[in-house]
Amino acid sequence: MEIYTHHTAPTQFVEAYGVRFAYRRFGKKEGLPLVFIPHILGNMDSWDPSVTDGLAQGREVILFNNAGIASSSGEVPTTFAEMAKGAGVFIDALGLTKVDVLGFSIGSMIAQNVALERPDLVRKLVIVGSGPRNGDGIPLNPQSQAIFTNKYGNLDDFWIDGFFTASPESQAAGRTFLKRRDARVENRDTPINEKVQPAQFAALTEWGNPVGERFAYLKNIRIPVLVAGGKSDIIFYTINSFYLEQNLPNAQLILYPDAAHGSLFQYPALFVEHTNLFLRG
């Protein structure tokens, strides 16, 4: 039987509630699967193979596109709560009754909602480059506004500016990440269409609105949570990671030095080691 990797796992489909979800599964079929929820404008090819294959050494990894994203059908919801319902529907459609979830950037906000709404489904949560509802500088701060409104000639420069710091070391790590990310050549995912960004930004804007006492909702996420991020995140200010760690009942925090929003892509081996320790612990 062929053992699949990030580069070779075939794209499969499962249908539920009128949506045809695209997904890829690979890794060791032991313990609970780890479901990945990607960043803004991300699809299954947006992940770092060093992270996905690294984590797949010890468990099954599942990458998927939520409704309306890339090769999945349907419409993109305009709130993270609705996106989380879609993620839950997808996981149910695979026949899984318990999973771990890893969410990066807006994926981490969707992941928080999955854990809130489906505490029966999620055992442990890993959130990277994250922020709580009504966090500081959410939806946009001056630095992130400049990045999102800049007319980049090369989209890779957008990811470098958003995910990495200005230091030569971080910039070099960013360029190396892009090469790893783009190394899959066969059966690549469908590009993101023009309807995705407005819907995701609407969800991010809604996430910036206060609802009740600030951060009180986090007390209802009682499962173990690993909060990871960069020391110098300008997409969602790093202070937001502290807010999460302080207000989640069972959370631990790791911040990586000279790193920005894409810390897991700058320190993939270290991130895999820390995540493995957390998931096994």
Results as ranks from 00 to 15, higher is better:
Ala9Leu: 06
Ala9Phe: 09
Ala9Met: 10
Ala9Pro: 08
Ala9Thr: 07
Pro10Lys: 09
Pro10Asn: 09
Pro10Tyr: 03
Pro10Gly: 08
Pro10Trp: 03
Gln12Asp: 11
Gln12His: 14
Gln12Ile: 02
Phe13Glu: 11
Phe13Trp: 10
Phe13Pro: 06
Val14Gln: 12
Glu15Lys: 10
Glu15Trp: 02
Ala16Cys: 02
Tyr17Ser: 15
Gly18Thr: 09
Gly18Pro: 06
Gly18Arg: 05
Val19Gly: 02
Val19Phe: 00
Arg20Lys: 15
Phe21Met: 13
Ala22Cys: 10
Tyr23Ala: 06
Arg24Ala: 13
Arg24Trp: 03
Arg25Thr: 13
Arg25Lys: 14
Phe26Val: 10
Phe26Gly: 09
Phe26Gln: 10
Gly27Glu: 01
Gly27Tyr: 00
Gly27Pro: 00
Gly27Asp: 00
Gly27Thr: 00
Lys28Leu: 15
Lys28Ile: 11
Lys29Phe: 04
Glu30Trp: 03
Glu30Val: 12
Gly31Leu: 08
Gly31Trp: 01
Leu32Cys: 11
Leu32Pro: 10
Leu32Tyr: 14
Pro33Gln: 05
Pro33Arg: 02
Leu34Ser: 01
Val35Arg: 02
Val35Cys: 03
Val35Asn: 01
Val35Leu: 09
Phe36Gln: 07
Ile37Asp: 07
Ile37Leu: 13
Pro38Val: 08
His39Pro: 10
Ile40Asn: 06
Ile40Thr: 13
Ile40Phe: 12
Ile40Ala: 14
Leu41Ser: 12
Leu41Gly: 08
Gly42Asp: 07
Asn43Val: 13
Asn43Leu: 10
Met44Asn: 06
Met44Cys: 11
Met44Gly: 05
Met44His: 08
Met44Arg: 04
Ser46His: 06
Trp47Cys: 01
Trp47Val: 09
Asp48His: 03
Asp48Gln: 00
Asp48Ser: 00
Asp48Pro: 05
Pro49Met: 04
Ser50Ala: 14
